[in-house]
Design a protein around this nucleic acid. Sequence first.
DNA 1: GTTAGCACTTAACATCAAAGAGTGCTAAAA
DNA 2: TTTTAGCACTCTTTGATGTTAAGTGCTAAC
Lengths: 358, 358
Amino acid sequence: MKPSDNDLSARKKLILKAIVDAHIDEGEPVGSKYLTQFKQLAYSSATIRNEMAELEAMGYLEHPYTSSGRVPSNLGYRFYVDALLQQYSMTAQEIFELNQLMHAKMLELDKLIDRATKLASSMTNYTGLSIKPRPASCTVNRFEAIPVDSSSLVLVMLTGVSTVKTKYVKLDSEFQKEEMIKLGTVLTECIAGLTADEITLPKIMEIERQMGVSYRIVSPAIKCVYDALSESDSGDVKVEGADLLLQYPEYSDISRLKGMLNLFEQKDQLLQLVADADDSKVNVFIGSENSVNTMNDSTLVFKTIKEGGRVVGAIGIIGPRRMNYSRVISTVNQLSAAISETVNGNAALEEGNNSDNN
Amino acid sequence: MKPSDNDLSARKKLILKAIVDAHIDEGEPVGSKYLTQFKQLAYSSATIRNEMAELEAMGYLEHPYTSSGRVPSNLGYRFYVDALLQQYSMTAQEIFELNQLMHAKMLELDKLIDRATKLASSMTNYTGLSIKPRPASCTVNRFEAIPVDSSSLVLVMLTGVSTVKTKYVKLDSEFQKEEMIKLGTVLTECIAGLTADEITLPKIMEIERQMGVSYRIVSPAIKCVYDALSESDSGDVKVEGADLLLQYPEYSDISRLKGMLNLFEQKDQLLQLVADADDSKVNVFIGSENSVNTMNDSTLVFKTIKEGGRVVGAIGIIGPRRMNYSRVISTVNQLSAAISETVNGNAALEEGNNSDNN
DNA sequence: GTTAGCACTTAACATCAAAGAGTGCTAAAA
DNA sequence: TTTTAGCACTCTTTGATGTTAAGTGCTAAC
C-alpha cells in the first residue's frame, strides 16, 4: 500500500464504495443525486459530483457517455476489493450446507470438487468452475498388476491418498498370471515416485532385466504407465450453471455472452490461468486484468486446493464484474478450505474413528 | 407408412422438400416467389402458393403471420426427415478424421465417447452431447483388494472390458495384508455378477463367514461396493461447444438460449431421454416432440452405444430445428457405429495383433 | 469548502410514415 | 380442370422525428 495508491480522502473512499455498492445492486450507472439519499453522504449532489469528477480523473470511475452516471473502472473494482470490502459472514443455512458437503461420506477428490463447485454456484447464483489441473509431475507410489486373461491385465497405479488410476494393458503375447503379478512389484521397485520424464531407457532396461524371460511384457505396460503419467489425465474443467449468467443484464448482450461461452469451451486457457495463479489465497481477476481478453466485463474468483504441497484442483466462480464480491470470495474461500482440510486431514486420520468414510 | 400419412402428390413433396431445404439454408420464412427460381419447380408463384396453402391445411407448414413466407411445422420436419431426406456422404476429410479417432490408441470408453462427441460437434458445427447413462444394473465380474497400509485398502472392481472402478476403503481396525487380499477373492466368489439390489443380508453373512476371524473387514468394504454399484457412477452428460449455438439466429433470442442452457444443466432430463430411446437407430427429436418443453425450436439427434447388449453411452448433437439433418444424422450414426465397433471388436481381438492398443 | 442553479448532452422511448415482402382471391388463359 | 396474371390487403421492417428524463459541468453565490 504505497501512499500514492491509497491517496484517497476518507470521503472519496466513502463515495467510491457507495458507487460500487450501488452499481452492484442496481446494475446501472449511478448518478450524484442518487447518492445523496444515503445518510453517510450528507452532501449536496454538486459536491458529490465534484468528487466523482476527481475520482474519474484518478481512474477509479468511468463515464459511459458524456452525461450519465458513473461506473467503476477495473481499477475502481480492484481498490474496492482490496481496500473497501467488508467481510461477509455466512448464514446458518450456508454453514449447514457446507457441513453437509464436508461430512458426506466420500473421499474422492474429483467428486468433492465437483460438488463443492455446484454448491458454490447455487449459493452465489453465479457460474461455478470445477477445475482439475493437468498434474504437472504426477508420480505413482505403487503399481499393482491384475491379470485378466492370458494376454491382458489391469494396471492399478496408486498415486496418492485420494487418487487411483487404472489402465487396461493389452499384451503382445501370452503370459502366466505370476509373470503379470511380478510386473507390478518390479515396476514399483524401479519407477515408483518418478515422473514421466524420469522414466529413461536405462530404467526400462532394468525392468526388463528383472522380468527375466517375461521381458516382452514390459514394453506395452510401460506405454500405459507413460500414458497415465502424462497425456491421460489431461486436466479438466467443468462448468456448473452456465445458465445462471443469463439472469444478469450484462449478458443480454449476445456478443458478451458468446465470449463467455467461448471461454468455457477453452478449458486450456482456464487451466493455464489457474496454473499461473497464487496458491495461497483467493484469486480475483477483475475484467481484463488477466490475459483472457474476452472477459472484459466479468470477474473470475477462484482458489486452488492443495493436497500435501501439490495443487490438485481449484474451485471458482465466474460472473459479471458487478458481482457480490464479499459473498463470492468468502464462499470460494470457505469451500476450498473445507476441501483442503478434508483431503489433508485424511492422512492424519489414519487410525480411522468410524466406518463411515470410504 | 399409412397411405393417409403419405398422401402427398409428387409435386407437393417436391415443394415441401424445397421449402424445408430453403428454410434450413436461409433461416427465414420462404415465399412462393422465391421457390420459382428452382427449375424443378417450373410453375408460377400462384400455383405454388395454392399448393402451399394446402400443405399448410394438412399441417406440414406454418404461417408466422398473415402474410409472410411459410415455415415447416414439426410435422413438416418429421416428414422431411422420414421420407424426403437424401443420404449424406462424408467427405474424404471427414472419413480421415473419423479413422484418426478410431485408430487412436485408447480403449477407455469414456474418453472415446468424449472425443467422438467433440468431433461430431466440430464436424457439424452444432453442440455435442456426450452421454454416459447411469448404468441400470451395473455388475462386477471380479474384485481385487490391494492393501495400502494396515487399515486401508484399494478395492479394484472389474466391470467389463473397458471399465474398471476403484474405491478407497478405510477400515475400522487393523488387518493383515493376507486378510485384505483374501477379501478380494471372497467377494469375487460370493457377489460377482450381482447388481446392488441382489446383495442381500444372507450374502453378506456368507462373506463374513468365509472371512472367518477377519469378518470385521467386510462391512466397510461392502459399503464401498454398494456405493460403486449404485450411487457412484450416476450418469454424466458433457456438453461440447455450447457456444456454437450462438451463430444461429434462433438463439439470438435470449429466452430461447436460456432454455437451451438450462436444458444442458438438467442432465437428468437428458439421461432420461436417452434411457427411454430406441437403442437400434438414430433418434431424432424434432422440436417439442419429446417431453422436454423447453426445446421447441431445437432438435436433438443421438444414438446410443452398446457394449455387449447393454447401453453404455450415447453421442448426440443438439441444434436449431432448422439443422442440416442429413449431415447430422449421418455423422452421429457413423461415429456411434465406429465406437460400438471398437468397443465390441475388443473382445474379438483377444489375441492382440500388435502392441499399439492399451 | 459547499451548494444552488442552469445550460447542455445523450440515451431511451414512442410515434409515424414509407417500403417491402408475401399472401388470398378472382378471373382469365391454357 | 389446371395454371397463371393481377390486384387488394396484411403485416413486418426500417428510418426519421420529437419528446422525456437523467445526469453532468460550470459558474456564481453562500
